[in-house]
Simulated assay, not measured.
Amino acid sequence: MAKYGVALVAALILLVVNASIWQKERVLANGKTVYLALAPVDPRSLMQGDYMRLRFALEEHIRAHLPTPPPDSQDGYVVVKLNAQQLAEFERLSPTLPSLPDTQQLALQYRIRQGQIKFATNAFFFEEGQADTYAQAKYGEFKVADNGELLLSDLRGENLTVLSKTRL
């Protein structure tokens, strides 16, 4: 009987994991594209192995609209307006997912943990030997779900040029 219980739990775990993967694949395929400008990071920590630490310029706009000192933990949405190139420009903060009638606006989910503002990720992983290519990154390319969830899909260079050789 215990074997069946273990098999059932394993099957449920696989079902949940696969559903999560399917959902993220749908966002990557169908989500709205938005570009967030990268902010400088400590150059001593820029490249560590085959990933790059990321920080976004939008974080400074969010920080400027938070109380001082910022909360230790908070979830919310930053409303951005997309310009002609789909670059995000700060408009306002919202504690809940806002209704946005303007199709050029997006609500992007953010969270604050231990006083640090976080978007989808703070790192970008790439193929071994591609550090010099990604050191030119100026923008993060994100896909945005209807609920404001962001998935980092790539990094872009100056003028939104594609950096990865696999996406040419």
Rank of each mutant, 00 (worst) to 15 (best):
Q74M: 13
K81V: 06
Q85P: 05
F56T: 06
Y51A: 06
V27W: 10
L54P: 06
A29M: 05
Q116K: 10
L15K: 07
V16S: 09
V16G: 03
T96S: 07
A107I: 02
L28E: 14
D132C: 04
D146S: 15
F126S: 06
V144H: 01
L58C: 03
L155C: 04
L36G: 10
T68D: 15
Y35R: 15
R55K: 12
K81W: 11
T96A: 09
K143I: 03
L100Q: 08
L14V: 11
G49Q: 05
I13A: 15
F126R: 08
V34A: 13
E91G: 07
M52P: 09
K3Q: 08
E60N: 08
V162E: 13
L150C: 14
K3G: 00
S20H: 12
L14I: 11
E59D: 11
N18R: 10
A120I: 02
E25D: 15
L100I: 05
I62W: 07
N122L: 04
E91L: 09
Q109P: 01
L87C: 09
Q48T: 08
L108I: 04
R55M: 00
G49H: 02
L36Q: 07
G140L: 01
V79R: 12
F126P: 10
R44W: 01
R156G: 00
A64H: 12
E149P: 08
V34G: 06
F56W: 12
T103H: 06
G148I: 09
V78Y: 02
A7W: 04
S153E: 07
S164E: 03
A84P: 00
V162S: 04
P95L: 02
T68Y: 11
A88I: 03
G115S: 07
R113P: 00
M47Y: 08
I112R: 02
V34M: 04
K143E: 11
A10T: 04
P67T: 02
K81Y: 12
S164V: 00
L155Y: 07
A37D: 09
L160Q: 15
A84E: 14
R55S: 07
A145Y: 02
